[in-house]
Design a protein around this nucleic acid. Sequence first.
DNA 1: CCGCCGCGTTTATGACCTAAACGGGAGGGC
DNA 2: GCCCTCCCGTTTAGGTCATAAACGCGGCGG
Lengths: 254, 254
Amino acid sequence: MNDPDTPAARGDAAAISPADAPDTGHGGLDRRRILDAAVRFIDEHGLRALTMQRLGAYLGVEGMALYRYVPGREALLDGVVETVVDELFGDPDVHLEAHAGWVDYLQRLAHGLRRIALAHPEVFPLVATRPPAAPWVRPPLRSLRWIESLLDVMIESGFSDENAAAVYRAFSSFLLGYLLLEVSARGVETGPVEEPDVSPIEDLSRYPLLQRLEPHLSVDVAAQDFEEALEALLDRVALLLPRRRRPARLTEGK
Amino acid sequence: MNDPDTPAARGDAAAISPADAPDTGHGGLDRRRILDAAVRFIDEHGLRALTMQRLGAYLGVEGMALYRYVPGREALLDGVVETVVDELFGDPDVHLEAHAGWVDYLQRLAHGLRRIALAHPEVFPLVATRPPAAPWVRPPLRSLRWIESLLDVMIESGFSDENAAAVYRAFSSFLLGYLLLEVSARGVETGPVEEPDVSPIEDLSRYPLLQRLEPHLSVDVAAQDFEEALEALLDRVALLLPRRRRPARLTEGK
DNA sequence: CCGCCGCGTTTATGACCTAAACGGGAGGGC
DNA sequence: GCCCTCCCGTTTAGGTCATAAACGCGGCGG
């Protein structure tokens, strides 16, 4: 057998769904319904559990039925990524245009992406690591429309072409690092419902500081770290602007 | 068939190795040889191509032989990650102790990890995303010894316990974001040797800025971005230190 | 000289992806 | 009303994989 005991993969079709699944309600697949179901499925059972057969069952259908609407598993995953990233368009707090300046724009965009990451922790690693369509599409902002929008806002705000591109790169790296780590940490603390494991992780006694700092390391300050790093990034970005157009102060020196 | 045409996955055992493979030279497996071979294999053929059978063939042996030394595929991947991360111990430019202050220490550590990422672009995503042993082990620095070392250096340099932990978190996020993006961008520009693809990616005409900035977006300035973001991070970290112990200037104002 | 054991091989099972053939029912043309 | 035809989900089949379990060979200590 494959994946002999992985908790997520121990999916007897029974346990997986007919009861609470969306199950279409009236039969009749289509690409959208499949993709949405796939996202929900991954949210509920984890990426590893996603199988054509199981997703089919989740929709009340044989696995092969999906192939009529989706070219294959890889394409399905691409669709999942796209579906999740596109949630950004439905977010009332995030806008394609900067109504209140580039700082506000980038903050809303960052928070919007963070919301998505936290809403779909099991999907986000996919968003982060799936090979992008073009080399300059940098996860997690992998939508041409949003990239265009970001560049537009920066340029309208007075940044040079080169600096706009640099901001895009720095912003991507920032988001990827912080969100991927936040999401995967959350996954580790929630996910592995495994047995207490015979090995208490490893011999901690050899690492006195790890022991002493364990409380500090385990406190979840991801939200605060994110805010602070975002502020720092925005401050740094502001310095790229010709002095006259620079916003006075990003934060009121708490 | 699986993976119908993926270039990396088109591995007839013939194409894969006996010729240039390590092939032990004298038969006789062991865990170390297997792990090293796995790293080389992934470097050469990509992660997707790694199969128990193929790795066996690469070593001149049947796939099942590996199971005597490795509990299974997952464990193998864990071993690969560990192997690669442990290269840090062999790096003459990186030291467990800070001989020249914490700034120098963090710079060397960051560059050491970047060297690893660039040396094993196909392995790095694994380093980045594999669930860590403990929740406070943050990729890509997933070695207890190095975490301990980092915390030690920071604390010896006068940072509080809390700030040392904060530095560790910020440093991890920074490395993860920048290195993962750099490595995957490199992978995209090299990797997909696919047919020119009927769709020229997507209709670019709707995104005038993407078109106009394409040159700026495609220039590879990853190294420079990395240095600048590292400097910015270190500057920010320096502010955590009591004023008296703060290093005068990190960069001589270029 | 023999039986045991370390180690790679063979055999077997089951999960999974996917190509291809299949079949039933619903709707349109007559 | 009848039949033809697609649309769409199902069945069938075959290939790749991971992995458990039985196997067998060669060397070594008794």
